[in-house]
């Protein structure tokens, strides 16, 4: 039975990786080169970004070297992810609910990294009863308590808001409640496991160690087992839902909103445009293909549908 449990763990982990890969690949495959669709302010515009300006504010901009501040992009994205700045600015009521929820998840994700770090320390010879390891254990125990409370509190507050806000209610589907409910339950089980065991950290460390060493030992706590089972499910489920924005926000921000690279500065894009124009479109309106065969975008762009047929 415990082997099956661990197999589910591997499955969830690889499921997450595969689905994340598929999502990203599908985004990349949707178009080898999409149109520019930037939206200002764009943080990498350096000083100009403080007023939302762009390189196009410069005379003869195409003659000048292009400066892109990648660190500003990263800073802006990290700031957004860590503080949910857009929601804070534009939907404060929701922010008070969704921020704890997100913080809870970040804490649990961060907790996993700390547990991995502790295993690394153990592998290089630091004893589990070393003072530093005990400190890490206390941190994890605190993180789980705080993170669990945040997920449960934030999740319940979000459910409450979705049920009672007339505007949100109309856009809320059973899946929204299911997802939020699953996270709340996940948090509750984590808290119960925390409350009923001497050290959550020890359980978590042993579990991760077992996973890494293929040692399929049964887990000591039912609540912890259930907490993990639900965690496995959520890990695989998450990329299939709108919560996949966790992965895709990088693209929606970096590649679309801030994707302002002019063709002048991109040899790759210069090469790609003619290839894009070779795609055949089959739009049926009279001014495109009508009832005829598909046409390449090059043919479409170079035909004038307003010219009488005999002249074209």
């Amino acid at each position: 039975m415990s082997t099956f449990f661990y197999l589910l763990g591997y499955l969830a982990f690889f499921g997450f990786i595969c689905l994340a890969f598929l999502k990203i690949r599908s985004y990349m495959k949707a178009s080898p080169l999409h149109a520019r669709w930037e939206l200002y302010p764009v943080p990498h515009e350096g000083e100009k970004s403080s007023h939302g300006g762009s390189f196009m504010e410069e005379k003869d901009w195409w003659c000048k070297p292009r400066h892109v501040s990648h660190t500003s992009d990263i800073k802006a994205l990290v700031f957004e992810v860590l503080f949910l700045h857009a929601t804070f600015e534009h939907n404060l009521k929701l922010w008070f609910r969704t921020y704890p929820f997100h913080v809870g998840m970040y804490m649990l994700m961060g907790g996993i990294i700390i547990v991995l770090f502790s295993l690394f320390l153990q592998a290089v010879g630091i004893a589990p009863d070393n003072g530093f390891m005990i400190f890490i254990g206390n941190v994890i125990n605190a993180v789980v308590l705080f993170g669990g409370l945040c997920i449960v509190g934030g999740g319940l507050a979000l459910i409450h808001r979705r049920m009672n806000d007339e505007g949100l209610k109309k856009y809320t589907t059973p899946e929204h409640y299911f997802n939020l409910g699953a996270f709340v339950l996940f948090g509750v089980l984590g808290l119960l496991a925390w409350a009923c065991s001497p050290s959550f950290f020890n359980m978590a460390r042993d579990f991760v160690c077992n996973m890494l060493s293929f040692n399929f030992q049964p887990l000591p706590s039912t609540f912890f087992t259930l907490h993990l089972l639900l965690g496995f499910f959520l890990m695989a489920w998450l990329p299939m839902t709108h919560m996949g924005h966790l992965l895709m926000k990088y693209f929606t921000y970096h590649d679309i909103r801030w994707g302002d690279t002019p063709t002048t500065y991109s040899e790759a894009n210069k090469q790609k445009i003619p290839d894009m124009l070779k795609y055949s479109a089959s739009w049926s309106a009279d001014h495109i293909c009508g009832n005829g065969a598909p046409k390449t975008w090059l043919e479409i762009a170079t035909t004038n549908p307003a010219t009488p047929k005999s002249e074209s």
């Binding site: 949707a30 149109a35 929701l94 949100l168 709108h242 996949g244 693209f251 929606t252 894009m276």
Partner: peptide, 17 residues
């Protein structure tokens, strides 16, 4: 091809907030 990536992300990731 010019707009598909933006359209797909707008279809899949709205949080209905």
């Amino acid at each position: 091809w010019p707009f598909l990536p933006m359209l797909e992300t707008s279809m899949d990731y709205c949080a209905q907030c």
